[in-house]
Amino acid sequence: MKMIEASHVFYEYVQRDENDNIEEVSMALKDLNLSVDKGSFVCILGHNGSGKSTFAKLLNGLQLPKEGTVLISGMDTREDSSLLAIRKSCGMVFQNPDNQIIANVVEEDVAFGPENLGLQSDEIVRRVDEALEKVGMSAFRMKSPNMLSGGQKQRVAIAGVVAMKPECIVLDEPTAMLDPSGRRDVIRTVRELNKKEGITIVHITHYMEEAVYADRIVVMDDGKAVMDGTPREIFSRVEELRELSLSVPQATELAHELRKEGLPLPEGILTMEELLQYLVPLMKNKGTGGGKNA
């Protein structure tokens, strides 16, 4: 069974004026088909308004598709009776860390989900311990969230989801409001959860550097999935991405430009290290051959 299976999904936002007349209807999702395997790490890219956040909210029944179906582990998000089970198995982390922390103490916030599930106190304590350990925030357990940095708050929010023992975590631009070091911490945490715990990750972002770590990238544009493949495949298509007003990771872009200038570099270089691996031998060859450009 697939973790997520969205088929022929349509979603529209209706804007009404004061008299409840329809002013504007905008289609956020148009016939979207997308499925995600269990245990995979999928990155969804797209510029603002491409429908990626809307898609995220469909994944745990916060919003319901106008047409089509969204199945989470085979459960239909439209079934009221399975809504809690869906939200339990598919947790969600949002963009603004401040607006998703409910309690005044870190451990109480992490406990919020398990408390809603009606678990026994000792089981809740165990899960809070575990979850904080997994995101590396155990030392901050008794602190007030207001004392934490953005990255730390976001890891607390992740712990809050982890404590519900989900099969899948959907992260909706979790790093958009963070500084570079906070961003790194969050990404590392998410990757570890995927590798060690086998939790399926759906990461929505517009930082290309973050997408490099995914097993699979889905590019969304105008409410549809327009590109789908491994990071290497996707980032080899630099010109296509540019047309969708998306950039590529810095290393990929540099390699692409160098290739255009005639250097024999392969497409789809993702990181600086990789680029160096190809560039250093080239420079050495040049050095011994011509001697002029070394």
């Binding site: 916060l62 969600m92 949002f94 998703q100 409910i102 989900g113």
Partner: peptide, 13 residues
């Protein structure tokens, strides 16, 4: 609005 959504997402009922 954000907070109520986050609470619902964490099974608050």
């Amino acid at each position: 609005l954000d907070l109520s959504m986050a609470m619902e997402a964490r099974c608050y009922h």
